[in-house]
Design a binder for these strands. Structure first.
Lengths: 346, 346
DNA sequence: CTGTTAGCGCTTTCAC
DNA sequence: GTGAAAGCGCTAACAG
């Protein structure tokens, strides 16, 4: 009787079909798949054969309905994410999730359109076992909204009150960069910021301000507002060029801004690093291909993703429930050609 | 009695809770949500109020089990995807899907580890309404595997026999670039390829070969094997530098390779475009920030994603079932500083 | 060890 | 219009 898989393209086989095919009950099929050691080898093999013959796959929706994990993680990102940065974070997330049989849903949050409702809907649809919030999606405004649905939640590159997060030592590392530049003679700095509401930006700016506060007699720190994009880096360069007293050192909040800044500066005849030193942030691949190559603070992007996913899975598994603290990864200062000694009279 | 939402953090409210709260049957709740016009306004309002009060969201798993669409699309990508290129394709996909209430799962296919099984498992788990296969995941080897599960399938930037696909006019556009370079005096070309099994690479190479076949008396076309990555672009540059007769025009299969090529060439004292003209492919943002700015063939990345998602949704909706053909989008040749007249004696 | 059975939460006939 | 009830496919008691 053993009918082979082929033929009917209509409906996928269910556990009942397998049970009949193997001449056992559905419970045995279920067990043979989920807990093989509880089933006598003879039966187990018959089940396995039936499964192969029919090309059976458990229906995930039914499993989920019956109380099982969905093995789906919602990853919330912003519509306008920095591809070079987040793509690698996503890779890290995916790597850890896949290794544990999980998959990720990408939920792009369009802040412009404020359709947060859609997001909360998704979170409450019972589809996911947990949520990973990438930098920028969580701000003061919606932090509680994300927590509300009661799903396990970990944020990466930002922090939501009372929620575990994975961060880097942004403050320390940008101060390290400033210190290096100070050491080679720079006294007039400008910080190209990200959006003021951004968690990372605040951490960096606060650290920088504190550092220069102690040096306020000998140093000057300006700030030009940006939003991480090349476009805003170019705009910052225009303002830089127009300023009466030009800073000699630029600390940019993203590599993309820094690279655009350099392009515009060079076109205007300003030499990097001869006239102005530029330091980026993130350590994207292209920082090593621009002209001049960009000194930058490299963030462990893959690790950020991997660690965030790891922590989330721990929480889902029931370990470390209470652990709502931060995990802080270390950045690396990469010195390249875009920074050098300050010009004579800065 | 009307208990307010708060309090119990234990279990989300079900349709039964809503029905009780509103004093109606579950059927009415279901209808009030899915087909409001079938329910008398008075009842409808009571239901809506109960929904709000309890913070009710339909359980997606149960809906799916009962036969509804899951509104989930599986997007299959390669582990090693080119971030600058695909991130924008993903944006296009997400944009179209979100507009129609769909979400996307990112399924990274790790070709190195050949865990295609995992992928097929997912496709057969009944979780998804359709599949989008991005460039490279579909090759001769696994094309049929992807079709097998019988899910609606559209491939983007590659083609699977008998499956709808969204492509660009890669062949025509790279020939257009070649023609332009020919027009400004170049006679010795080299093509920096992608992986030989890659669909795009084949299209481009075949078109290029055909074009130069007709010019074989006056032109020479070499080929250096790469894989789209900067790394392989740098390696290609080494081979270029080592060659006895250096080509004067480079047609690269990706911008990333082209940019890395230029970097290595410049370091070796070869001037771009003075000694060699370089043309990239894709039109990533950085092509406009490198030194010199890169002439390239811009692919409509966002549109590729948007169109692929659109076609998939059409199929899922039951329209255009038979339509297994290709949709071909047009590329644009962007002339910038990395190309110029051929040097005197090429 | 294995089979029987009762739902998980929802939609959808089928009666009323 | 609305309600009662039958499952969708699966798993987890509970018996045997």
């Amino acid at each position: 009787m053993a009918s082979v898989r082929g033929g009917s393209r209509d409906k996928p086989p269910s556990i009942v079909d397998v049970a009949q095919h193997a001449g056992v009950s559905t419970a045995t099929v279920s067990r043979a798949l989920a807990a093989p050691e509880q089933v006598r080898p003879a039966l187990r093999e018959r089940v396995e054969m039936a499964v192969r013959d029919l090309g059976y796959r458990p229906n995930a929706a039914a499993q989920r309905l019956r109380g099982r994990r969905s093995r789906l993680i919602l990853v919330v990102t912003l519509t306008r994410w920095s591809a070079p940065f987040f793509a690698e974070v996503l890779n890290g997330i995916d790597s850890e999730l896949a290794a544990n049989g999980y998959a990720m849903i990408l939920g792009n949050l369009d802040l412009d359109r404020r359709q947060d409702g859609h997001l909360v809907d998704m979170m409450q649809s019972g589809r996911f076992d947990g949520v990973l919030a990438l930098a920028g999606v969580a701000n003061a405004a919606n932090g509680h909204e994300l927590k509300e649905p009661g799903l396990p939640l970990v944020s990466i590159c930002s922090e939501i009150q009372g929620t575990p997060s994975v961060l880097t030592d942004e403050g320390e590392s940008i101060v390290e960069a400033a210190e290096h530049l100070f050491g080679i003679g720079h006294r007039h700095f400008v910080y190209l910021s990200g959006p003021a509401t951004n968690f990372s930006d605040r951490s960096r700016w606060d650290a920088l301000k504190a550092y220069f506060e102690a040096k306020k007699d000998e140093c000057r720190l300006d700030r030009i507002e940006g939003d991480f994009t090349p476009r805003s880096g170019a705009a910052a360069a225009e303002r830089f060029l127009a300023s009466l007293e030009r800073p000699t050192a630029v600390l940019s909040s993203s590599d993309e801004m820094a690279i655009a800044f350099m392009k515009v500066a060079k076109h205007a005849g300003v030499h990097v690093p001869g006239d102005v030193s530029v330091c980026g942030f993130d350590g994207i691949d292209f920082a090593d291909y621009c002209e001049p190559t960009l000194t930058t603070i490299r963030q462990p992007r893959f690790e950020l993703g991997r660690t965030g996913a790891y922590r989330l899975l721990q929480i889902i598994a029931g370990h470390s429930e209470v652990d709502a603290g931060r995990t802080v990864l270390r950045n690396t200062l990469c010195l390249r050609d875009s920074t050098g000694r300050a010009p004579r009279h800065g």
